[in-house]
Amino acid sequence: MQMSLSPPDATLTVRLILNGEPVTLEVPPQAILLDVLRDQLHLGGTKKGCDHGQCGACTVHVDGRAVNACLRLAAMCEGQAITTIEGLAEKGQLHPVQEAFLVHDAYQCGYCSPGQIMSAVALLEDPEAATDDAAVRDAMSGNLCRCGAYRNIQAAIADARRHLESNAQQQGRQP
């Protein structure tokens, strides 16, 4: 008997929270989250660089954790909160990490930037993560930037960290 490589025709229903909004999807069971975001939901900000989890361009947040969307089946995301680069700015205001990337010229071609930013935001929001420069460089090393804007990305992350911490302190002081 020859094994068929044909995927099944049936689709699955997946409910998730996408950039804060509930979404119901019909997807084939083998559909990759990255392709569903880009081709089905028309969210092109999450980039396709290798489809193998080797470049980091497709980094999104799944329940707050940075994940390579190319290594994840859409069907695995039932009930989860997915945030993409399109969901980061609030009310047209750039997220402090995006703002810092702009000021520090932390990109060139910009293709890896959504992934870099999503990884950086997850890192800055992770209370367990070490904060020294070497630890940041290590944590960010899954996000390739072939243009090599690494120094500026690292400077932007450090700057955004200061900004977020000072925001948090100010909010702490308010009643």
Binding site: L43, G44, G45, T46, T84, I85, E86, L88, A89, L94, Q98, F101, L102, V103, D105, Y107, G110, S113, P114, I117
Partner: peptide, 11 residues
């Protein structure tokens, strides 16, 4: 700062 920066950084 790049004039196309915001478009690149927001997707």
């Amino acid at each position: 700062p790049r004039i196309d920066g915001e478009d690149k950084l927001t997707g």
